[in-house]
Amino acid sequence: MISFLTLEGKRALITSGTRGAGAATVKLFQDLGARVLTTARTRPPEMPEAQFVTADLTTPEGCVAVAEAVNSRLGGVDVVVHMLGGSSAPVGGYQALDDAEWQKEIDLNLMPAVRLDRALLPEIEARGSGVLIHVTSIQNQLPLPEATTAYAAAKAALSTYSKSLSKQVSPKGVRVVRVSPGWIETESSMELSRRLAAEHKVGVEQGKQMIMDSLGGVPIGRPSKPEEIANLIAFIASDRAGTITGTEYVIDGGTVPTA
Rank of each mutant, 00 (worst) to 15 (best):
S87C: 09
Q103T: 09
Q95H: 14
V114E: 12
V77K: 02
N71Q: 15
K104I: 00
V114D: 12
D117P: 13
G75A: 08
D99G: 09
S87L: 05
G76H: 07
G76A: 03
D98E: 06
P122V: 01
E105M: 07
L97K: 09
A69C: 12
A67H: 10
N71E: 14
V80C: 06
E123Q: 12
L84D: 02
A96G: 03
G92T: 08
A119W: 00
H82T: 08
A67G: 12
G93M: 05
N109T: 06
E123F: 00
Q103C: 07
R118L: 06
P122R: 05
L120N: 07
D107A: 15
E68L: 08
L84H: 06
M111F: 15
Q103S: 12
E101K: 12
I124S: 00
A113W: 07
S88A: 09
R115C: 04
L74A: 10
A100I: 05
D107H: 14
V80P: 06
V80M: 07
E105H: 01
L120K: 09
E105Q: 13
W102L: 02
M111Y: 15
D78Q: 04
G85K: 04
D98Y: 04
V114C: 13
Q95D: 10
L108V: 04
Q95M: 12
D98I: 01
K104Y: 00
Q95T: 13
E68N: 11
L84Y: 00
R115L: 05
D78K: 08
D78V: 02
S87I: 04
Q95I: 09
V79F: 09
P90M: 01
S88Y: 00
E105C: 00
V80A: 04
G76R: 11
P112M: 05
L97T: 09
V70R: 07
K104M: 00
G76F: 03
V77Y: 06
R118Y: 09
A67N: 09
E68S: 10
N71D: 14
G85S: 06
L121T: 11
R73T: 10
P112C: 04
S72E: 14
E105K: 02
W102G: 04
I106T: 13
A89S: 08
A113Q: 12
H82N: 15
E101N: 02
A100T: 15
Q103G: 02
I124H: 00
L120A: 05
D117I: 15
L110N: 14
L97V: 07
P122I: 02
A69S: 15
L116Y: 09
L97I: 03
S72W: 10
L121Q: 09
E68W: 00
A96M: 04
N109L: 01
L97G: 03
A96I: 08
A89Q: 03
